[in-house]
């Protein structure tokens, strides 16, 4: 029983991270009908930004961008002693990484996706794959190919639960931040004017345009928001599992995408549900069946659900109009 409980906790904290990334996929899909394959790589960039914010660029890196070798840029928030490892530091690092990645998302949208938006969706898809390859290969050149160790932003400890299970404080914090971000997103989409415009754009781009909505601005905002969430996920994952490398986004991104489709792509609660489901299933398969078939089982569930509910768990079934 305690093993089961432990596996369930493991699964939920893994699933929360998938959910956070899946949200970005779902939002972009909702607005543009574009599978943004580069999203997983934005998550990677987010983790690296967190790394450089905390640890600094190093003496060489700082000099390369014209900064002194012992300033904040060179040694980071932690290295220069500007901040102590604490929850506040973690939040500051995360928010800054989110801001940087939001900018990255806007740049990607502006220079890669907007020019192809007027063309077919397949063109956009290939462009997305191109951007993804660019971020991965560029990451290997810029960040270096070797895995990096993410600094400890706050002290972690184990909290024992009833029944012999235990939970790490990092897991709790990741979970709390993830839930807070999801609620925040829900509020933005359903309680603000911009959110209303986003829903209108996703409902029908052309009509929204005719209603006087600046669709370009809304799409840009969607990318900024999605990329910021991916960056948050990147930093949160790195807090929990402190190893980051330029290819870390590929598999996680793919699974988060699967989670988004599973829950009903374009649907925010669906993405959260899909992420949790994938996380828990994976953990249970690893714990009780053969770990080797982990990926196969995740995909098999996806296929089964799609075959019986083609628009995902929470997606609405659309009648095709003639």
């Amino acid at each position: 029983m305690s093993t089961f409980l432990q596996q369930l906790i493991n699964g939920i904290s893994l699933g929360a991270i998938y959910s956070l990334i899946a949200l970005g996929y779902t939002m972009v899909y909702g607005v543009l009908k574009l599978i943004n394959f580069a999203h997983g790589d934005v998550y990677m960039v987010g983790a690296f930004m967190g790394y450089y914010l905390a640890n600094g660029l190093g003496a060489r890196g700082a000099q390369a961008i014209g900064q002194s070798a012992d300033g904040l840029i060179a040694r980071g928030l932690l290295g220069s002693g500007a901040m102590e490892p604490s929850l506040i530091t973690a939040l500051v690092v995360m928010l800054l990484a989110m801001a940087i990645c939001a900018a990255l998302g806007v740049i990607i949208e502006r220079f890669a996706y907007r020019p192809v938006r007027k063309y077919s969706r397949l063109t956009a898809l290939i462009t997305a794959i191109g951007v993804s390859l660019l971020l991965e290969n560029g990451g290997q050149v810029v960040f270096g190919a070797d895995p990096k160790f993410f600094p400890e932003l706050f002290k972690k400890r184990n909290i024992d639960l009833f029944g012999g299970a235990s939970i790490n404080s990092a897991d709790i914090i990741v979970l709390v931040i993830a839930i807070a971000l999801m609620i925040g997103l829900q509020l933005v989409v359903f309680r603000t004017k911009t959110g209303r415009a986003m829903r209108a754009v996703s409902f029908n781009l052309q009509s929204a345009k005719l209603m006087g909505i600046n669709t370009d601005r809304i799409i840009m905002f969607t990318f900024a928001l999605g990329s910021a969430l991916a960056a948050a996920a990147g930093v949160l994952v790195a807090i929990r599992i402190p190893r980051i490398d330029p290819l870390m986004g590929i598999l996680v991104g793919l699974k988060a995408f699967v989670a988004a489709v599973l829950g009903g792509i374009g649907n925010i609660p669906g993405a959260v549900l899909g992420g949790l489901l994938i996380g828990i299933t994976e953990t249970m398969v690893v714990g009780y069946l053969s770990p080797t078939y982990k990926d196969a089982v995740a995909f098999a569930i996806l296929i089964l659900i799609l075959l019986f509910r083609p628009s995902g768990l929470l997606g609405s079934v659309a009648q095709e109009k003639v």
Binding site: N10, R240, M248, V252, T283, P291
Partner: peptide, 14 residues
């Protein structure tokens, strides 16, 4: 078992 790049080993460890 696990697969290279896996981030989470808690299930196996348990």
């Amino acid at each position: 078992s696990y697969q290279a790049g896996d981030q989470d080993f808690n299930a196996q460890i348990t």
